[in-house]
Design a protein around this nucleic acid. Structure first.
Lengths: 231, 231
DNA sequence: CCAAAAGTGTTTGTACTACACCCATGT
DNA sequence: ACATGGGTGTAGTACAAACACTTTTGG
């Protein structure tokens, strides 16, 4: 006689997936927030989220939710923490698994985001958010800092071709501190994972600044041989 | 007319909390595994786990589950990832939020752990586990390595008084690599966060080796002034 | 010719690595 | 006296940090 698992008396919960969406406008790191359309807290700002469905895993749910808001497929995603305070959502017990995502701001579908009343904010000018979303954003930023200093994921936030100035701005904005430009350039050069293009971006100076591409293949080769990205 | 949140049509799930329990026997890092008593997979080894209840958050659930198995309260805990493959538990859709915990092996209640058929294994000699628990353990170890190199949490695995040899063994075992003893001692000394006691441990040599305590207060002071623990 | 941004190297200090011998004690 | 584990320091190397001037070009 077999004993079978009987889970029927266990409590079930709603499992939300909430996404901190990072973007970069060539100057500053931003997050995309939406205006909540439901009570409670209607009209207040919040993270984009949705509920996990029975036929998908959490990564798939996050991708679905992000596609729905931005129109972009295969967004870079990292799951970083789950939030479970008993009364975090006053309407019903809800656990939230939080992700952060990195998108190239140029790629998103403005029509879609406008339908959600979504808006980009810098970290410092972001409004108060519903529930525990302020905490989630704070934790997302520290996870992002951790990860971007160890893996070359910052490029996910940039267009395919970018200037060194933009790259520099990006890292300064992520770490919220000044990084000496010469040391920064030395470090980037020494890693040798960028391709310098012949093209220049003439939009910000008379001299123009060279455009670069991230050389993913070279990076993966070097990584396979023990190289570690580090900023 | 207010629109109210209506979550009633959303899928609900069982939310499990699974715990990778690390211990250290003065020689090697170990994990505590239990023998599953329910079908499916009865008699196979697994992580200790349980289901989240409506009146508690995830940290509380993890503490409850660990107290239940080990008899220890206020165990050091880190939540590190959630696992959600659709068919990970063949009996029913279950999402697992995974924690790792660090305990001083001397503290746990042997009677309780024996009731669960629990046993300590070194990482390399651990048996195959049910579901995705092998993956969970693997990820727990890398989270632990990350964290122990940046925060002084290794002491959670040691008794209050320990020898430098034990501390050294601990870090070698966590990182699974040899650490030059003189460099290790130099680093530990330079951080200046241990208290050297007058007492010696005579159990492993004629000369005896000094016992040390972690100086939490001093560490917190130094940390507040910008000091970072680093191994 | 000048304003504005882009581009570029060197020096100094700090941290990590590699490495070997003496000490204390019980038997 | 010797075997066993405990304890300690230094020199070389590599990485990180600080720092300022020249170049280009459109107006």
């Amino acid at each position: 006689m077999k004993k079978l698992a009987n889970y029927s008396e266990e409590d079930k919960v709603l499992l939300a997936v909430d996404c901190v969406i990072f973007g970069f406008d060539r100057e500053e790191l931003k997050i995309l927030l939406i205006k909540r359309e439901l009570e409670p807290e209607r009209g207040k700002w919040s993270l984009m989220g949705g509920f996990l469905r029975n036929n998908e895993n959490l990564d798939e749910a996050a991708n679905r939710i992000l596609l729905h808001l931005t129109g972009i497929k295969d967004i870079y995603l990292e799951q970083f923490h789950s939030y479970s305070k008993v009364d975090r959502d006053p309407a019903e017990r809800t656990i939230s698994v939080a992700y952060y995502s990195l998108i190239n701001m140029e790629d998103h579908n403005h029509e879609l985001t406008e339908n959600f009343g979504a808006k980009w904010f810098t970290i410092s000018s972001a409004p108060p958010l519903i529930f525990d979303h302020n905490l989630i954003v704070k934790n997302a930023i520290s996870s992002l800092r951790d990860k971007t200093s160890k893996e070359p994921i910052g490029f996910e936030l940039l267009p395919p071709k970018f200037t060194r100035k933009q790259l520099h701005n990006l890292y300064e904005s992520i770490f919220n501190e000044e990084l000496d430009i010469r040391n920064f350039v030395n470090k980037i050069n020494s890693m040798d994972i960028l391709i310098k293009l012949d093209e220049k971006d003439m939009s910000s100076s008379r001299k123009g600044s060279y455009l670069y591409k991230f050389d993913q293949e070279k990076y993966l080769e070097k990584k396979a041989q023990g190289f570690d990205f580090k900023i």
